[in-house]
Design a protein around this nucleic acid. Structure first.
Length: 493
RNA sequence: GAGCCGUUAGCUCAAUCGGUAGAGCAACUGACUCUUAAUCAGUAGGUUGCAGGUUCGAUUCCUGCACGGCUCACCA
């Protein structure tokens, strides 16, 4: 916005005038006694007679979002965090000088009000203003009152304008906060301890995404923003913390899309002496209870699609899903060569290598994942694409792992943890080999973690849930940018 | 990184075939004591994202660039 803009200049002049008159345009001594949301909730149904019986004055503060002037009276709407309320200014009550002062207020200014409640002819609960003061002068015009702000770039870059203008946006973010609060309560009630582990990692691990690189000057040491907290949380499990969880940011240096932001929030939790089966049950309880609380039942609508969360949720083995849901020829499950042929025939590029497990994972991504609309646990993943999961007792080629899919996207990933240090070392080496063959230098060998594991880790199960994606589902948001206040954008010139 | 689409007043949007860039809200002046998208009368507000090109003339056609959106790629 141009500083020479006429509208801004006008308001700057108003500010100068206020200062010259000795009026502080930014005071901080107004004491608030009520907010609009509580007032409407408590007195919304009171009659005019009952309202007259109230003796205490109401002191509210907020931003003016609409002004309707008459010759000797004015209505405004004022907005605070809890909602908006109408206020009525009358020359007869306020006096000439005070009423003239009010007339100099602009839409966008913060105002403190004192008065009592009454009901207008149309029945709207309104504050009859007895006293008022300026609490903060606004120097820039707000977006238009009727159409609001729709320019998506301004909505992201100047989210405060989005929040002022579009009520739904505030609802979504307040709900996000509430969901995270409930998740904390869920784990606290079950005896889990919330922990915080480093975001600056000397060796990135726990996932193979490309990391952001940074540098510590005093130690002259390269560091990486974490791609996952997993390996540090497991160190805590080794240290004897049997039930822990962390809700925090991870960072992945990859593309941006409606499902991906370079920094995103993940919930990870670990429970010793539990298995991936226990994790699935706990997931049903956690997510199911959230749906129930916020949607009044076990169903919600996401992007016009009805999704039923009534437990138990469908469970299907990874390989079975390729045949039953992907309608692929069962021969690909036994014959790696046929799997490669099928993938190529279907137009997949197989950039990640042609090992059987990876090819099947590629086929899964393309032919199964988009069809998993109702909550579905896919289990028994191939061992070679699950380097941190415990092998299945009956079939060591698969692991005791699941991924939860809802609305055709991955929401959670959990497994019984691999606590055999020798097997873990082998898997890391195997992973390193694969990556080296592809010429990808982004993988590092975390010897320190293996040493920790060699001290002994109890049998444990763990899980990660993508909070942003879950909030998208809960708030019917089509893009991850709708649930992150400030999604990453390129810098403006 | 690729393809497609978009960018006009503070905001939301118009502008015919290439022919003087308009409206509503917001703002300013005036009228108005129950309005709520208040109403009425008037005024002002533009480097049409940026840089080139074609043309007598470009918001409009062409090229490049910037930013954004969607799709794809990337993301076990």
């Amino acid at each position: 916005m141009d500083e020479t803009n006429e509208l801004i200049q006008q308001r700057m002049r108003k500010l100068e005038t206020l200062k010259k008159e000795g009026i502080n345009p930014y005071p901080n001594d107004f004491k608030v006694t009520h907010n609009s949301g509580d007032i409407l909730k408590i007195y919304g149904s009171w009659s005019e007679e009952e309202l007259k019986g109230l003796s205490d004055p109401f002191r509210l503060a907020g931003r003016i979002i609409a002004i309707r002037n008459f010759g000797k009276a004015s209505f405004i709407h004022m907005k605070d965090q809890t909602g908006k309320i109408q206020a009525y200014f009358q020359k007869e009550i306020l006096g000439d000088e005070s009423f003239q002062f009010f007339k100099r207020f602009d839409i966008g200014d913060f105002i403190g009000l004192e008065g009592n409640l009454f009901r207008t002819k149309t029945g709207e609960l309104t504050l009859q203003v007895k006293k008022f003061c300026l609490l903060g002068k606004s120097l820039r015009p707000l977006p238009e009152k009727w159409h609001g702000l729709t320019d998506i770039e301004i909505r992201y870059r100047q989210r405060y304008l989005d929040l002022i203008t579009n009520p739904r946006v505030k609802e979504v973010f307040l709900m996000r906060g509430l969901i995270i609060q409930r998740i904390r309560e869920f784990f606290n009630q079950r005896g889990f301890c919330e922990v915080e582990t480093p975001m600056l990692h000397p060796i990135p691990g726990g996932a193979t995404a490309k990391p952001f690189r940074t540098h510590h000057n005093a130690l002259d040491m390269d560091l990486f923003l974490r791609v996952a907290p997993e390996l540090y949380l497991k160190r805590l499990v080794i240290g004897g913390l049997e039930k822990i969880f962390e809700i925090n940011r991870s960072f992945r240096n990859e593309g941006i899309s409606t499902l991906h932001n370079p920094e995103f929030t993940m919930l990870e939790f670990y429970q010793s002496y539990a298995t991936y089966l226990d994790m699935m049950e706990m997931t049903e309880e956690l997510l199911g209870s959230l749906v129930k609380e916020f949607h009044g039942g076990f169903t919600l609508t996401y992007q016009e699609k009805r999704i039923d969360f009534t437990p138990p949720w469908r469970r299907i083995r990874f390989k079975d899903s390729l045949v039953e849901i992907g309608h692929l020829d069962p021969i690909i499950l036994k014959d790696p060569q046929k799997a490669v042929e099928t993938a190529r025939k279907l137009g997949l590029e197989l950039k990640k290598g042609t090992s059987h497990g990876r090819v099947l994972a590629d086929l899964f991504k393309e032919w199964v994942e988009p069809h998993l609309l109702e909550p579905t646990f896919v289990t028994h993943y191939p061992t070679e694409i699950s380097p941190l999961s415990r092998r299945n007792e009956e079939d060591p080629e698969v692991v005791d792992r699941f991924e939860l899919f809802i609305a055709g996207r991955e929401i959670a990933n959990g497994f019984s943890e691999l606590n055999d240090p020798l097997d873990q070392r082998e898997r890391f080496l195997q992973q390193l080999k694969e990556k080296t063959e592809e010429g990808d230098p982004s993988l590092f060998f975390d010897e320190d973690f293996l040493v920790a594991l060699e001290f002994g880790m109890p049998p444990t199960a763990g899980e990660g849930i993508g909070i942003d994606r879950w909030v998208m589902l809960m708030t019917d948001s089509p893009s991850i940018r709708d649930v992150i206040f400030f999604p990453l954008l390129r810098m403006e010139k």
